[in-house]
């Protein structure tokens, strides 16, 4: 158990940062960045989540075991996304390596 006590100013600073990023999310939604629309929105969301986990959830001052548990959660998220993508990214590729429709007979 971490004995670290964070000052109130830290919470306010992080809160301010989260509000800023929320405003940024809304602002960016009005600008068409083309292919970057999704990556930018996701990057902002990841930054906000990281701030919450590290500071509001005190992970930054926690034991290595707690950090390992948090990392494990993300590792499994990676498995979920990664293995799902083995399906989505290879749709339409036939077993002989050729690209094309999977449906060859009607």
């Amino acid at each position: 158990m971490s004995g670290h006590v964070s000052p109130k100013s830290m919470y306010f600073t992080i809160f301010g940062a989260l509000m800023f990023f929320t405003a940024l999310t809304v602002g960016v939604a009005f600008v068409d960045l083309g292919h970057l629309n999704f990556p930018v929105a996701l990057a902002i969301a990841i930054t906000k989540a990281t701030l919450v986990i590290l500071f509001f959830m005190h992970v930054i001052h926690s034991s290595r075991l707690t950090k390992l548990i948090v990392a494990t959660g993300f590792f499994f998220l990676l498995i979920l996304f990664g293995l799902t993508m083995t399906d989505y990214l290879t749709r339409g590729i036939q077993p002989n390596g050729q690209k094309g429709s999977m449906i060859t007979q009607h």
């Binding site: 083995t86 290879t90 036939q94």
Partner: peptide, 10 residues
């Protein structure tokens, strides 16, 4: 309807 590649991996 998953891809043949994904099916082989799984």
């Amino acid at each position: 309807g998953i891809s043949p590649y994904a099916a082989m991996v799984f």
